[in-house]
Amino acid sequence: MPKISMKVNGKTMSGEAEGRTLLAQFLREELDLTGTHIGCDTSQCGACVVHVDGVAVKSCTMFAAEAEGAEVTTIEGMANEDGSLSVIQQAFQDHHGLQCGFCTPGMVMSAAALLKDNPKPSEAEIRDYLEGNLCRCTGYHNIVKAIMAASGQDVGAIAAE
């Protein structure tokens, strides 16, 4: 099996991959980065979203070999350097933006990609942006709220209830 390598969360890592090995599989099985989840096989649920060379992609719909030499960021690389939660992660905890946690890595990665392009998104823009991230637990209410809060917007007016 060919060996491929990429820079994941700042560290060069390598492992074996067939042609058909998906990036999500490679991260989970070869690199043991199991924070990236697989929730569907039609590229819709978004539990597998990671950043490749700075943009959000669905790692279950990309071959590992396509990411050879790329810079990849996964949920494991999102905390602050001292290990504390990043602003987005902290906002998800503060506003109860997760329940079972399975969609959460993808949600956080998508939220980070959104805020990079659009630092103060409206509620509608957030909902639109999350088209490719399914959550079955939260009804999205608190996810949207968390992302607004992470962008520094006052969420006090949003029905807290």
Partner: peptide, 9 residues
């Protein structure tokens, strides 16, 4: 088309 991650690929 699709969603942001799909549009990036």
């Amino acid at each position: 088309i699709g969603d942001p991650a799909v549009r990036n690929r």
